[in-house]
């Protein structure tokens, strides 16, 4: 493989990987954080069971998520009419399902502790449920951002589900992880290593961002 196409392929695949995982994590955060907060401030029968189910869903095997989503999105499946199979949207959907329980559960843990601290004040001030949730999310934003970054780390490194629902189609649904598996199977180890190196750089960047966030918080709260 010549150098110029290799670099352009690498850039294209990397950008697609980032676009899929960033979109998935933003969507999962938009749903998971408010849900975790709602769970933290609301008392109802079955709440403990709901939290237990949420925690259990964190361990969902991605391959199974991919398989179920494949069955749902395939032409004969109930969601086949959406025509999403083998598109980046199917991959985003798979990643949302994988990281949503992680974000919701971590958010719930963080916000439950903060709620224990703030409860008397917010109830005393007559804050509505929506206001309570907003105050909690705002004041826990640093910890929540950490949860979101952790979820991004999981999403960007995921391969099983997106391989099944994305199909690893060149210039369409191929991302870093699926490309690595393909290039290894083809024996094209040079390109596989280059792809792997980009994945490692992304992981390192996430770790450094987490570290910088925690350092910035110690020096000057924001």
């Amino acid at each position: 493989m010549e150098t110029a196409p290799l670099i352009s392929d690498l850039a294209e695949i990397t950008l697609r990987s980032l676009r899929v995982s960033v979109t998935a994590v933003i969507l999962a955060a938009a749903i998971g954080i408010p849900f975790g907060a709602w769970l933290a401030v609301t008392r109802f029968g079955g709440r403990r069971a709901a939290v237990a189910v949420l925690n259990a869903l964190m361990g969902l095997p991605p391959v199974v998520v991919g398989l179920v989503l494949y069955l749902l999105l395939s032409r004969s499946g109930p969601l086949g009419v959406l025509d999403l199979l083998f598109t980046t949207w199917a991959m985003i959907l798979a990643q949302v399902i994988i990281v949503l329980p992680l974000i919701a559960s971590l958010s719930h843990q963080v916000l439950r502790d903060l709620w224990a601290e703030y409860r008397d004040l917010l109830v005393s001030l007559g804050a509505t449920r929506r206001q309570r949730i907003w105050v909690l999310i705002w004041d826990a934003r640093r910890s929540l951002l950490t949860a979101v970054l952790a979820a991004f780390g999981r999403a960007v490194g995921e391969v099983g589900a997106i391989l099944i629902v994305g199909g690893n189609i060149d210039h369409l649904t191929r991302v870093l992880t699926t490309a690595v598996t393909l290039e290894v199977s083809k024996g094209n180890l040079t390109f596989a290593v280059a792809l792997g190196a980009v994945l490692i750089v992304i992981s390192l960047a996430v770790s450094l961002a987490l570290h910088a966030l925690s350092k910035a918080e110690r020096v000057r709260p924001w």
């Binding site: 703030y118 004040l121 005393s124 007559g126 004041d139």
Partner: peptide, 17 residues
């Protein structure tokens, strides 16, 4: 009404702000 009442607990609650 409850909204016309205020409460200060023994251990002051301060928001992270």
């Amino acid at each position: 009404t409850p909204r016309e009442q205020s409460y200060v607990p023994q251990r002051a609650i301060v928001l992270r702000r």
